[in-house]
């Protein structure tokens, strides 16, 4: 009796250790993926000697490499995703990508190096993982807590949300987009036309 429970305990322990090592392997991957991406972005985008157009192109490459834009696109439409036609979805994905590039690429210009520290990585329900980093601030305030939600697409890590101090980009963007569609009579096209217009404006504003 005692022996059996001892054997059971051993088997359980082995399984536990095996699952732990498997887990930490996966965890390190996602954490390393984020650090590598951040490093690449800082090297490529803070370069003072490139034009804004070059910066935007480099940002777009990194975005396509690191973010699962189709998934993000379907999340930020909220319940309206059920109303979007295939064509609308296709156009929305490319408009959203363009919008992200136009909004954020310029912010890297003149960004002075702040250190990024990997805090931890953990598995979420489903196949997603959460990578937590702390970004030191230069003004003496406590570091900023940034969490990257990452999942695998064809074996590659891709970001599906970024949570800064508990504020989720997907949630915020979703409420904004859903409100635009609702005001436009519940038509996805209302959002598409606003995005087209906005992207053109943003592109015109940052020309060199």
């Amino acid at each position: 009796m005692q022996r059996r429970s001892f054997l059971g305990f051993c088997a359980g322990f082995v399984l536990f250790v095996a699952s732990c090592s498997g887990m930490s392997q996966a965890q390190e991957d996602a954490g390393a993926f984020i650090l590598k991406l951040a490093d690449k972005a800082l090297t490529a985008l803070t370069d003072e000697n490139i034009t804004n157009a070059q910066r935007a192109d480099r940002f777009r490459d990194l975005l396509q490499e690191g973010m699962d834009i189709p998934t993000v696109a379907s999340r930020v439409l909220g319940p309206y995703v059920r109303r979007a036609t295939d064509d609308e979805m296709k156009e929305f994905i490319s408009l959203l990508e363009e919008n992200i590039v136009r909004k954020y690429a310029i912010m890297f210009k003149g960004y002075s190096g702040k250190s990024i520290e990997l805090i931890d990585t953990k598995d979420l329900r489903g196949d997603a993982q959460q990578v937590t980093v702390a970004i030191q601030r230069t003004d003496g305030e406590p570091p900023v807590d940034v969490r990257w939600i990452v999942h695998k697409v064809d074996g590659h890590d891709k970001i599906i949300d970024i949570i800064v101090e508990r504020v989720s980009m997907v949630t915020t963007q979703k409420e904004e987009f859903v409100s635009v569609i609702r005001r436009g009579g519940g038509k996805v096209e209302a959002l598409l036309s606003e995005l087209r217009e906005r992207n053109a404006e943003l592109a015109a504003n940052v020309q060199d």
């Binding site: 699962d68 189709p70 998934t71 379907s74 999340r75 995703v81 059920r82 979007a84 036609t85 295939d86 979805m89 296709k90 994905i93 979420l124 329900r125 489903g126 196949d127 997603a128 959460q130 939600i149 999942h151 697409v153 599906i160 949300d161 949570i163 989720s168 997907v170 949630t171």
Partner: peptide, 21 residues
């Protein structure tokens, strides 16, 4: 954590969300 939606596998192609839902 606002990940309740992430557990269901993300739709890969465009248009699949409709089918899925």
């Amino acid at each position: 954590i606002p990940t309740i939606g992430y557990e269901d596998a993300a739709p890969e192609g465009e248009g699949t969300p409709q089918a899925e839902l």
